[in-house]
Nucleic acid binder design. Sequence first.
DNA 1: GTGAAAGCGCTAACAC
DNA 2: GTGTTAGCGCTTTCAC
Lengths: 332, 332
Amino acid sequence: MMSIKEIAKLAGVSPSTVSRVVNNKKWVKPQLRESILALVRETGYVANNAARSMVLKRTFTIGIVIPDTFNMFQRQLFSIIEHDLEVYGYRTLFFFIKWEPESEFNCLRKLKAENVDGIIMLHELNHPDVYAYLTQASLPVVLCTFGREELGFHSVHVDEEAAARTATEYLIQLGHRRIALISGTHFSFASQRAAGYRMALESAGIPYDEARVISAVAYNPEEGRRSMWELLERGGEFSALFAITDELAIGALRTLYEAGLNAPQDISIIGVDDIDIAGFVAPGLSTVRQPIQAMGKKTAEIMSQLIAGEDCGAHSHVFAHQLVIRESCDTF
Amino acid sequence: MMSIKEIAKLAGVSPSTVSRVVNNKKWVKPQLRESILALVRETGYVANNAARSMVLKRTFTIGIVIPDTFNMFQRQLFSIIEHDLEVYGYRTLFFFIKWEPESEFNCLRKLKAENVDGIIMLHELNHPDVYAYLTQASLPVVLCTFGREELGFHSVHVDEEAAARTATEYLIQLGHRRIALISGTHFSFASQRAAGYRMALESAGIPYDEARVISAVAYNPEEGRRSMWELLERGGEFSALFAITDELAIGALRTLYEAGLNAPQDISIIGVDDIDIAGFVAPGLSTVRQPIQAMGKKTAEIMSQLIAGEDCGAHSHVFAHQLVIRESCDTF
DNA sequence: GTGAAAGCGCTAACAC
DNA sequence: GTGTTAGCGCTTTCAC
């Protein structure tokens, strides 16, 4: 690999001068600058990041903590964030969290080893050491799609409870009263969305019936499929289903197909997130949209401001959700 | 951030000794080793990667080149690769390629700056400078899901042409003779799969009819949907469709739904890849599976062998595809 | 067994 | 304007 010294030798100048040129600093005679630039182009020289970040004490790298099984929603989100971060001049480094308990600890190790300039979490970490480290290192942190007010981190998210209430109320408005729920236990959004469901029921004077709710152990289509089958096999009657994520809802839709049932004629189904594929299944999935694009952009923006030491105002940035009506729900 | 010097000072030893301990080298008195280890645990010290890789001249990082719009197939693939690479002791760094022409050049810059130990390409790059650099730097390279025999790189892929032929022949076997095709122009797999379609037709003595083929500009559901609408609007008759990717096929399935048509009753549809979601749409998508798991594992394995300087045998590792019959195709 | 010293590639004071 | 020097955090000879 070409190094700055070699370029310097070729140009007959000192490394400092080359450094000044490639970093666009002043105090280099225009003519010299040009000739060095030409040399750089010719040789294809690019400065070594490791060496650079060591002296600068900045890596220009933002760590993104994300589950290794990241779903389509998170996938869209991080693409947006990655893109914007690049525009701001930052690289992204992914830290994939697995379901094993040591994974979080492992992530912390890597975080320390990498010396990132900031961290964006698309995944809730529970190990207190992680948050302790982040705080103590006073590393810029932005939580995306969940909040942690107590910890004082910036966060970008929707009001999960309200979003779930919107979905459930839509079903109620359509005339449904026996509404099943596919919920889950992992991550705070699950209990928040489940709470929104209960509140909607309560407001409408509909009793909450445990026989119609099931807790999924993951948020993918296969779990949705499995859960819906279980719900069906319980024999309890329901005319509509609220699944706390679109992927779960898509799996439930699949179960209906397998069972020879139709949505929305037999059972109405609604999800949350509005992932890309939601509009392509048949019937198109009605859902509550999280403004992925806007949330991703905001996350990147806050991060860049935080690093620049600018004030970002409120710590909690709550985005409005939006009901998206497609074809999977009908009046009862 | 804690540094090796501080640990050394706390332990009352020199940095070299601490280094020996954390790197599990010999020549440290067991007792001393224990006390230093305890200190490391206590302080949560983790060696700085940048500094480490600078002196080692290895980064233990594998670059993964992937389109920023990576589809579900590629997403599954890289999760597997990332996981295995971690087991082998390597980190992964993603290089997202955008559709802009400068993106490839930009990627090359980053590649140079990062000093990765190896590169896995999940995306074909066309800029000759890239391959020139890879060769000249004699960096281990593994191409995944496409080949480049001429360039002498290792590659892991299926026989794209044969896979497409399998899909098309299945349709023919079912009695279809008017088979539409949604193909594309980007990346070599597209023309290879299109060629497989033509060969299957030819073998069956079915004339190739341009009126029934369309070229998509991307390989996502939206493009599949759009393409299928165009095919339908052309008015040409066909009883089956071969879409060169599952995402395209899923979009086409959606078009049928929108048009009030049914698969497989009105039109049979088959794709290629067998992405996760293929089994969850309604009807379940029949497709030709690429053994994602095996291919990902092999890719990581070859990479680790290449770095270790081991011989990996053949340069081209071709995996067998497999017809997956679900519900989207029926006899004509 | 352990420490001192050199050096990886780079940037930033500071000298000239 | 340009070069010299020191040093970022680490590992690795080479002394001792």
